[in-house]
């Protein structure tokens, strides 16, 4: 299934359409399996990636996703970076509140994704684009 894919190197995917969000999910799943995440943890990180990739597409006007298998010396994990050069987020705390939305969704994308992963970093400013980094470790 993953023949010919070197998982020790970062996998990249541009996000410009709905189908690309599906591709991001599949890419994240492959790396999460290789990082020996449990089934529940795989499901959590793929779901988080789906939410964030959709944000990149809908709010960031498209961008890139980079998936890397990582190791902190004790356990393997997966790190995903979502980057766009869209309008950015003015009030990050507000954007991370459950139910807050500017796009007509459920407002669970950012806040929900943060609950599904072990590490969550967001770098953004108005007009500067948005860069979200998430990490999930194998238990």
């Amino acid at each position: 299934m993953t023949s010919g894919v070197d998982l020790s190197r970062p996998q990249q995917q541009t996000v410009g359409s709905d189908e690309d969000v599906v591709r991001v999910r599949q890419m994240v799943r492959t790396v999460a399996v290789a990082a020996r995440l449990s089934l529940v943890d795989q499901t959590k990180v793929v779901t988080a990636a789906s939410e964030l990739a959709r944000n990149t597409l809908v709010y960031g006007g498209g961008g890139t996703v980079e998936v890397t298998a990582v190791d902190n010396g004790r356990k393997p994990g997966i790190r995903i970076v979502f980057a766009d050069s869209g309008p950015g987020i003015a009030d990050v705390d507000l954007a991370l509140t459950d139910g807050y939305t500017t796009g007509g969704g459920l407002g669970l994308g950012l806040s929900g994704a943060r609950r599904l992963v072990d590490e969550f970093d967001i770098l953004t400013a108005p007009g500067q684009g948005t860069r979200v980094t998430i990490t999930k470790w194998s238990r």
Binding site: Q42, T43, K44, T47, E51, D98
Partner: peptide, 14 residues
């Protein structure tokens, strides 16, 4: 609905 999906949905807040 699979168990892993249900657990994830609860965590997501849906």
């Amino acid at each position: 609905m699979r168990p892993a999906v249900a657990i994830t949905l609860v965590e997501l807040g849906l």
